[in-house]
């Protein structure tokens, strides 16, 4: 399902929550040329965020996310990347909460959880 940025990030958060402890979640980024994107646009999907960029032939970044069951995607173009990156990482940071918190130095240390 193609979404706008805000919708995508919101749904991504939900995807992480729904998959907690049960499924892995993949987020995939790839370059996409505007022309190819237009062809593959699914029925009923909303138009890409920025039609102007799509028309100019500027490459865009297709961002997809899935937990193996649900699929969502959105398109990011050059002027939007800084903000999108920030928000994407905020969502990931909030949801990748199973990661070990012990910082640095102990890449393989299994002790980190105990120490806390």
């Amino acid at each position: 399902m193609r979404l706008e940025h805000d919708g995508f990030l919101h749904q991504l958060g939900k995807l992480y929550e729904a998959s907690r402890d049960t499924h892995s979640v993949w987020v995939t980024l790839k370059r996409v040329e505007a022309a190819a994107l237009e062809k593959s646009k699914p029925k009923g999907a909303r138009a890409p965020a920025d039609e102007l960029a799509a028309a100019s032939g500027q490459p865009q970044c297709l961002v997809r996310a899935t937990n193996g069951k649900r699929k969502i995607s959105c398109v990011v173009d050059a002027p939007q990347i800084a903000r999108f990156q920030l928000e994407l990482m905020t969502v990931m940071r909030a949801n990748a909460d199973g990661l070990k918190k012990k910082p640095k130095a102990s890449k393989k240390a299994k002790l980190s959880l105990v120490e806390q």
Partner: peptide
Amino acid sequence: TTSERSDLKRIEELTGWMLAAMTEQ
């Protein structure tokens, strides 16, 4: 592969670089 929370910083950097590289003409 990582299970360290601190690696999120690196991933953020990489993601930024990739987003830029992918949208560059």
